[in-house]
Amino acid sequence: MRNKQHHGGRGRFENNGGIELEDVEKVFTLRRRTGVLRRSREEVRAVDGISFTVAPGEMVGYIGPNGAGKSTTIKMLTGILAPSGGRLRVAGIDPARERIRLAHHIGVVYGQRTTLWWDLPLRDSYTLVRRLYRVPARRFHRNLDRCVELLDLGALMDTPVRQLSLGQRVRGDIAAALLHDPAILYLDEPTIGLDAVSKVKVRGFLQDINAEHNTTVLLTTHDLTDIEQLCRRVMVIDHGRLVYDGTLDGLHTLGESERTLIVDFERVLPPVTVPGARTVKTDGPRQWLAIPADASAAPVVAAVAAHHPLVDLSIREPDVEDVIAAMYARLPRG
């Protein structure tokens, strides 16, 4: 096991909302029974030498297939897991060494798991958060009132967390993560399972928070629309390595990813031909048209509508797996 030690060298983002990783590794040892008494040890490099820097106030998407090392990275950035090697600084703090000090600077939201107290009403959970984080009363009420208003929590304040729907609970969790004005917000699949209205609400709220408080946001998601609307920068991790760091448009170009325009015509038509799109599938009066993800759909929609009688249409965004798979198909790995 490589074990790099980095001493000294103060971070560039001392005590503010920046994130720095330098050759960060996380190696898990799996013990497996191979016989009655024999055990084999196997090393799994969940994170295999990742370096990146996130400036204060940046909103960055962190994506990758399941098991790529996303959650492991987040766990190291929040101080839950200690890295096996490399150097990490979050707001100038070494997360593994000073977990409790770091906790005051970060907010964490898991879409699939609540950080709230399951049996307590939201109101009690928030009061407890306020006391644990020692948030001054005025600041607490200002932040809470804002969250309650923008995330529509007013009617839910006296409901125990376990009785909330998924969407309500995630909104409740986001509010809880922001009551202490964290400089950095980690969001792990924050829009998973949310309905369209909730998604729009959550995204809008995150944008406002970022604009107002310059909160750094690191977001993992499977919904590329989240990233499109929130992040100028996206990082892709796979097999524990960073394989892309740049704009979402750049990723689409690289992955040749396509959006799909699903069109219902009034009657069965032969495959339509419009500039900027190609028909990939037909089924009765319904046709599927592929458009490059970095191009606008508007001219295609206009062209289709101008020449054919339309009943309905919808657009499907490419998902993370598609984009990454396409990217690999084009780029040899390594």
């Binding site: 101080g79 906790a103 609540t114």
Partner: peptide, 22 residues
Amino acid sequence: DGTLNTLLVRPAPVLAQVAADR
């Protein structure tokens, strides 16, 4: 069930949080 992780991101010792829970 992984809920220990949620205690590790709060600014308080984990032992106290587990002991006082419920």
